[in-house]
Amino acid sequence: MRLAHARTADGDQPVVHLDDRWYDLRPLHAAVTPAVLAPDALAAIRAASLPAVEEPTEFAPPLAGIGKILCIGLNYTDHAEETGATPPAEPILFMKAPDTVNAPNDDVLIPRTSVKTDYEVELAIVIGSTARYLASPDEALAHVAGYAISNDVSERTFQIERGGQWDKGKNCETFNPFGPWITTSDDIADPQDLGLKLWVNGDLRQNGNTRNQIFGVAHVVWYLSQFMTLYPGDVINTGTPAGVAMGRSDGQFLRDGDVVEVEITGLGRQRQTFRSA
Rank of each mutant, 00 (worst) to 15 (best):
D107N: 11
V108K: 00
L109F: 15
P111Q: 06
T113Y: 14
E120W: 05
A124R: 01
S129A: 13
T130C: 11
Y133F: 10
S136F: 08
D138T: 07
A140H: 03
L141I: 12
L141D: 08
G146V: 10
G146L: 12
S150I: 15
S150N: 10
S150H: 11
S150R: 08
S150C: 13
N151L: 08
D152V: 10
D152R: 03
V153H: 00
T157C: 12
F158S: 13
Q159P: 03
I160P: 03
E161F: 13
R162D: 12
R162M: 13
G163L: 12
G164W: 09
Q165E: 14
D167K: 12
D167G: 12
G169V: 06
G169W: 02
N171R: 02
T174W: 04
G179A: 02
P180C: 04
P180T: 02
W181C: 12
T184P: 02
S185D: 08
I188H: 01
A189C: 07
Q192G: 02
Q192C: 04
Q192F: 09
L194I: 03
L198S: 05
W199S: 09
W199H: 06
N201C: 12
N201I: 13
L204N: 00
R205H: 10
Q206T: 04
Q206Y: 01
N207Q: 09
N212K: 11
N212H: 14
I214H: 10
A218S: 11
A218E: 05
V220C: 07
